[in-house]
Amino acid sequence: MTDDSLVVTDLHVEFSGFVAVGGVSFDAHPGEVRFLIGPNGAGKTTCIDAVTGLAKATGSARLGERELLGRPVHKIVRLGIGRTFQTASVFDELTVLQNLDIAAGRHRPSVSLLRARRGVEESIEQALEETGLAGELATPAGILSHGQKQWLEIAMLLVQDAKVLLLDEPVAGMSQDERTATGELLQRIAAKRIVLVVEHDMDFMRRFATRVTVLHQGKVLSQGTVADVQADPRVQEVYLGTAGAATTAAMSAVPEPVAGTRQGQED
């Protein structure tokens, strides 16, 4: 199991004195849809930045036997770590096929770059099928719908053959149906790969998370199954504000205690 697991231990990230992440540990394995949640500014994105080499960090982040921290971004990618960004970033001027073709390209020898593409590679066809983008092959990515862009990003990670998918708010701005489709897609992907999702949408989290880590002010507040986390009074306190301490007990009796959470998050 540990052979192909992502294990983050005692991760620290500082921005000129400000501790954005202060000693976070978590792990993720293939077969589970792993969630990382927390209020705005909790340090979720910074954790992903650290693991992918974008932010300088101390501590340890290992994929199997390999330490990731300290390597340049593109080398970490080549070890099998893929990520998306909070704002969808696809290559707007290129078609869906071209986007995917570039994502698939890191396995190709450099000289082959000088030739034009002929046909569609099998891995690309599979990813298109998987993400429901098969009909959009020749569409410029810039005119895809918001949800389709997010799927294209996931498809790019698939053709890239990433062992780990770090997804930063993949369903933000999606319709309810699109969220469901994305959740099911992630569950299918998670069978063979590590999927770590950063999300604000508690409803989405409840429906699709296998295991959850709650961050607050750069620290792990709670960790466990959805039920564990929801039952944790500290989590409720953070999501409901300090004034809610008295109401915490009352809230935990409510069937959907996190329902109020989303309102707290919208600001």
Binding site: H74, V77, S89, V90, F91, D92, Q98, Q160
Partner: peptide
């Protein structure tokens, strides 16, 4: 063209 439009993204594809 991809590098021109989104250099950071290209880096995260392993180039």
């Amino acid at each position: 063209v991809a590098t021109r439009d989104a250099e950071e993204r290209v880096r995260f594809l392993g180039y």
